[in-house]
Simulated scan of single mutants.
Amino acid sequence: MTNELSLPRFEIRPLTNEEGGGYLIEFPDFPGCIADGETPEEAISEGRDAFLSYQRTLEELGRSGRASESYSGQWRQRVPKSLHASLARRAMQEGVSLNTFVATLLAEGLGRRSVTDVEPPRKTA
């Protein structure tokens, strides 16, 4: 089967058993455009259909949909008051600002995650 639609940059990852198994395809430059399939090839095929539908919807709405390539390094995050208080206390104990403390926690968390952390789907006979 030949598909004339070339796809933009995408990422594929295996889904854990808790997520239902198979593979997920995401288009980072097009927020919310995702699909899945039992195999990487099926995920790409489903992703092609999802991307085409995504593009058609954007055209109907008169929008581009492409994610911004520039990031300011800043966003707002709402958290429960108790978590805010705990984070603020820990930052004070560490002698750093709340922003520095939270940025460090996020960076450490991202550093621990890797593609190998995702459990590949189990094959059933």
Results as ranks from 00 to 15, higher is better:
68 S>M: 11
82 S>G: 12
20 G>M: 06
98 L>M: 15
45 S>Q: 12
119 E>F: 05
63 R>W: 04
98 L>R: 09
90 R>K: 10
44 I>V: 12
34 I>W: 02
15 L>D: 05
75 W>T: 15
49 D>G: 11
73 G>M: 12
118 V>P: 02
96 V>D: 08
38 E>F: 08
75 W>K: 09
77 Q>F: 12
76 R>Y: 14
98 L>E: 13
89 R>G: 02
32 G>P: 13
37 G>M: 04
25 I>P: 03
90 R>N: 08
16 T>F: 07
87 L>H: 07
38 E>H: 06
107 A>V: 07
36 D>H: 13
87 L>G: 07
121 P>G: 02
68 S>G: 10
125 A>G: 14
118 V>S: 07
68 S>Y: 09
99 N>V: 14
74 Q>W: 13
2 T>L: 14
68 S>L: 13
3 N>T: 15
67 A>V: 11
90 R>Q: 02
100 T>N: 15
27 F>H: 08
105 L>N: 02
116 T>W: 07
76 R>G: 15
80 P>T: 10
64 S>G: 12
109 G>A: 00
85 A>F: 11
82 S>K: 05
63 R>T: 01
52 L>H: 12
88 A>L: 04
117 D>T: 05
14 P>V: 00
88 A>W: 06
34 I>S: 04
122 R>T: 00
18 E>V: 00
50 A>Q: 12
74 Q>D: 13
104 T>Q: 11
72 S>G: 14
58 L>T: 05
48 R>K: 14
13 R>Q: 01
99 N>K: 15
61 L>P: 06
23 Y>K: 03
34 I>V: 10
10 F>Q: 10
118 V>I: 15
47 G>E: 09
